[in-house]
């Protein structure tokens, strides 16, 4: 009897409390109003395009993080991995342009190889994290704290402590991937939308997505239900690695460089975006669209602070922190008013 009533109980809050689901969207709307009040330039198409394009990197990574967190895991290595992948991509492309000669060498084939290298590295890194967590039986926090340090050092080593810069001929070829677009929408925004859409389909419409949530809410029960828990966890990390690679492919053409400062704190931004979006840090509930909104909000806060001279720059961090807490409070507060 209790068993049959369980699904109903679970369904009720999610169906009845739209506010919880819409909380992040409300917070976003609030921020947009605030931004417009602060400076009307905020709503200009150019500014909105800037904000969304900037969001793309952490946003795409956050989509991957949604899966890892939904399974009850965490990945702290994504920022460092992004920097390392960007470094490797630049090194690979520069090396390829060299022997082929700048005349014919600097072209799309080289970019393609660079992209493949990025994707390969992302997948392998995800696999390593995932295997250490599942087969190594180490907490995800510790594993990814370790790989975070490793990737960060590797990029510093690759760059000799300095900055890796992409060959200028290659930059000209690769540039449109960041600066170009379709119908006036910048490419990174389109890719971000596509990644989010695919992420939503995977999380909400596939068996893998449902397994992620099941493992996150209770991995013992999931195991008894004949779910291959380790495999799903591993896949979530691999998916995260892939997302990082995609973000890097969009990031490299922007400034054509990678250094020890690339992607610093992206892991926290991604995790914050996921939580602001309504996914539980302890796992079990994943919300892709919430994550997207969370990522946009984080960029918006920075943007709004840059658009106003009214607040002392020394207080930027405090404002950011306060807005993040209020956003989550709004969401949790409405949820508890059942």
């Amino acid at each position: 009897m209790t068993q049959s009533s369980m699904p109903e109980l679970a369904r009720k809050p999610s169906a009845g409390f739209d506010l919880k689901l819409w909380g992040p969207f409300l917070a976003l709307a609030g921020l947009i109003v605030l931004g417009t009040l602060v400076n009307p330039v905020f709503l200009s198409p150019a500014n909105l395009a800037n904000v969304l394009t900037r969001t793309a990197f952490t946003g795409i990574i956050a989509v991957g993080a949604t899966f890892v967190i939904t399974t009850g895991g965490i990945d702290l290595s994504v920022g460092s991995l992004a920097a390392f992948t960007a470094g490797v991509m630049i090194v690979v492309m520069n090396a390829l342009v060299g022997p082929m000669g700048a005349g014919m060498g600097a072209g799309w084939p080289v970019v393609l190889v660079g992209m493949l290298a990025a994707v390969g590295l992302g997948l392998v890194a995800g696999l390593v994290n995932g295997l250490l967590v599942t087969k190594g039986r180490i907490e995800a926090f510790i594993v990814t704290l370790g790989t975070m340090g490793i990737f960060r050092s590797l990029v510093t080593y690759l760059a000799d402590g300095g900055t890796l810069s992409l060959n200028s001929g290659m930059r000209a070829v690769y540039r449109p991937v960041y600066y170009g677009g379709l119908f006036g929408i910048p490419t990174p925004v389109l890719v971000f939308a596509a990644v989010a859409l695919i992420g939503a389909v995977i999380l909400y419409r596939t068996r893998f997505g449902r397994y992620c949530a099941a493992i996150g809410s209770n991995d013992e029960v999931a195991r008894y239900s004949a779910i291959d828990v380790d495999r799903v966890r591993l896949l979530a990390f691999v998916l995260q690695g892939l997302c990082v690679a995609i973000a890097v492919i969009l990031y490299v053409p922007r400034l054509g460089s990678a250094s020890a400062t690339t992607g610093v704190l992206w892991e926290l931004e991604a995790i914050a975006a996921v939580i602001i979006g309504g996914t539980m840090l302890k796992g079990g509930h994943g919300r892709i669209w919430g994550t997207v909104v969370g990522a946009v909000m984080l960029t918006l806060i920075d943007n709004i602070l840059n658009l106003t001279g009214a607040i002392s720059v020394y207080l930027n961090g405090a404002i950011q922190g306060a807005i993040i807490i209020v956003a989550v409070l709004l969401q949790r507060g409405t949820a508890s008013k059942r």
Binding site: N47, R54, L255, S259, T262, N306, L307
Partner: peptide
């Protein structure tokens, strides 16, 4: 560089 780029974009809008 990344922060230089972001902050300048916003200055240019403003």
């Amino acid at each position: 560089r990344d922060d230089g780029y972001k902050v300048m974009q916003d200055f240019l809008s403003r």
